[in-house]
Amino acid sequence: MLVLSRRVGESIVIGNEVTVTVLEVRGDQIRVGIDAPRSIQVHREEVFRELEAENTSAATAAARTQKLVARMPRAAAPPGTARARPAAPPRDDR
Rank of each mutant, 00 (worst) to 15 (best):
R7W: 04
A70E: 10
N55P: 00
N55F: 03
P89K: 07
V25E: 05
R7H: 08
I12G: 00
L4D: 06
T56K: 11
D35V: 09
R91M: 08
P78Y: 02
V32C: 09
T60G: 15
V47H: 12
A87Q: 15
T19Y: 00
D28P: 01
V32N: 03
R64L: 08
E54L: 12
S57D: 12
E10T: 02
M72H: 05
I12V: 08
I40S: 05
S39A: 11
V8C: 07
V32Q: 03
R38G: 14
A75I: 09
R91Q: 15
Q41R: 14
E45I: 10
D28K: 12
L51H: 09
P37N: 01
T21G: 01
G33E: 03
T21A: 02
D93N: 15
V25T: 15
A58F: 04
E45A: 10
A76T: 13
G80A: 03
R38P: 03
T19S: 05
R44A: 14
V18H: 00
V3A: 08
V8I: 08
G9D: 04
A63R: 09
E52D: 15
M1N: 10
A87T: 09
R44W: 06
L4V: 13
I14D: 01
L51V: 05
T21M: 04
F48S: 03
I14E: 02
A75H: 12
